[in-house]
Lab assay of single mutants.
Amino acid sequence: NQASVVANQLIPINTALALVMMRSEVVTPVGIPAEDIPRLVSMQVNRAVPLGTTLMPDMVKGYA
Rank of each mutant, 00 (worst) to 15 (best):
L55W: 00
E35Q: 15
T28I: 11
V49S: 02
L10A: 12
Q2L: 10
L19Y: 10
P29D: 04
A48K: 14
T54H: 02
T15D: 03
P29L: 04
L40D: 01
G52I: 03
R39P: 02
Q2Y: 11
S42G: 14
A16E: 12
P33V: 06
A3M: 14
G31E: 00
M22Y: 02
A18H: 08
A34C: 05
R23K: 13
N8D: 11
N14H: 08
A16Q: 12
S4V: 01
P38C: 04
T54M: 03
V30N: 13
G31S: 00
L10W: 14
V60W: 02
V41H: 04
Q44D: 04
T53W: 11
A3R: 15
A18G: 11
L10H: 15
M22H: 01
Q9S: 09
S42N: 12
A64T: 15
D58L: 08
N14D: 13
K61H: 13
Y63Q: 03
T54A: 05
V6I: 14
Q9D: 08
M21C: 04
L40Y: 02
V26G: 04
T53K: 09
G31P: 00
G31D: 01
T28A: 11
M59N: 05
M56E: 09
I32K: 02
R23G: 07
V6P: 00
K61R: 14
L19A: 14
L40G: 01
V5H: 02
V27I: 06
V41Q: 05
V26N: 13
V30Y: 13
R47C: 06
L51G: 13
A64F: 11
P57Y: 09
A34V: 08
R23V: 07
L55S: 01
N1I: 11
T28V: 10
A18M: 10
L19F: 12
E25W: 06
V60K: 02
S24H: 07
A16N: 12
R39C: 06
E25N: 12
E25Y: 06
P38I: 09
N1W: 11
V45Y: 00
G52C: 04
R23E: 06
I11D: 01
N14S: 08
M21S: 05
V26R: 09
L51W: 12
A48D: 14
G62M: 09
E25K: 15
N46Y: 08
V5A: 10
P12G: 07
L19D: 08
A7N: 01
G62F: 08
A64L: 15
S42P: 02
G62S: 08
P12E: 10
M21R: 00
A7C: 05
I37C: 04
D36A: 09
P12F: 05
V26A: 08
T15V: 09
I37G: 04
T54N: 03
Y63S: 03
A16I: 15
R23Q: 05
T54K: 04
G62V: 04
T28H: 14
S42Q: 08
D58M: 08
T28F: 14
L19T: 10
N8L: 07
P12W: 04
N14Q: 08
N46Q: 10
V60I: 11
S42I: 03
I13C: 07
A48V: 10
E25G: 11
D58W: 13
A34M: 07
P33L: 09
I37W: 03
Y63F: 07
P12L: 09
T53L: 12
D36Q: 14
T54S: 04
N8G: 08
A3D: 06
Y63A: 03
M59G: 03
S42E: 08
P38T: 10
M59V: 08
I32V: 06
L17C: 03
N8Y: 04
A34R: 06
D36E: 14
L55G: 01
P57A: 15
V26S: 10
S4K: 00
A64S: 14
V27N: 03
M56W: 05
Q9A: 09
L10E: 14
L10C: 06
S42A: 07
T54C: 04
R23A: 07
K61T: 14
V20C: 06
L40I: 10
V60P: 00
M43K: 09
N1G: 11
E35C: 07
M59T: 05
M43N: 04
M43C: 06
R39K: 14
T53Y: 12
V5P: 02
S42C: 05
P50A: 15
P57W: 10
D36M: 13
N1E: 11
N46C: 05
L17S: 01
P38A: 10
Q44N: 11
I32P: 01
D58G: 09
M59A: 07
V60F: 04
M22K: 00
I11V: 06
E35N: 15
L17G: 00
D36Y: 13
N46W: 08
T15M: 08
L55V: 10
V6A: 02
M59C: 04
V5S: 03
A48R: 14
G52K: 04
Y63T: 03
I37L: 11
M21E: 02
A64C: 06
V60A: 01
A64R: 04
N46P: 02
V27L: 05
V49G: 02
Y63I: 04
Y63K: 03
I11C: 03
M21D: 07
N8A: 14
A64N: 14
S4G: 04
A16D: 09
I13E: 11
M59R: 01
P50N: 07
V26K: 14
I37N: 01
R23F: 05
L17I: 10
E25P: 02
T54P: 06
L19R: 13
G52Y: 05
S4E: 00
P12V: 05
V5E: 00
L55M: 12
R47E: 10
I11A: 00
L55Q: 00
A7K: 01
V60R: 00
A64K: 05
L51P: 15
S24V: 11
A48W: 12
D58Y: 10
V6Q: 03
A16L: 13
V20L: 14
M22I: 12
V26I: 14
M22A: 00
M56L: 14
P50E: 09
A64H: 15
E35S: 15
A7Y: 03
I11W: 02
T15R: 06
M56A: 05
T28S: 15
R39L: 09
A3N: 08
T53N: 10
A7P: 01
K61G: 10
G31M: 02
P50Y: 09
P29W: 03
R23C: 06
P12Q: 09
D36G: 05
R39W: 08
Y63G: 03
K61Q: 15
N14G: 12
P57F: 07
R39I: 10
V60G: 01
A18W: 06
V41S: 03
I32D: 00
V41C: 04
A7I: 06
L55P: 01
L51Y: 15
A34N: 05
T28N: 12
E35P: 08
E25V: 11
E35K: 11
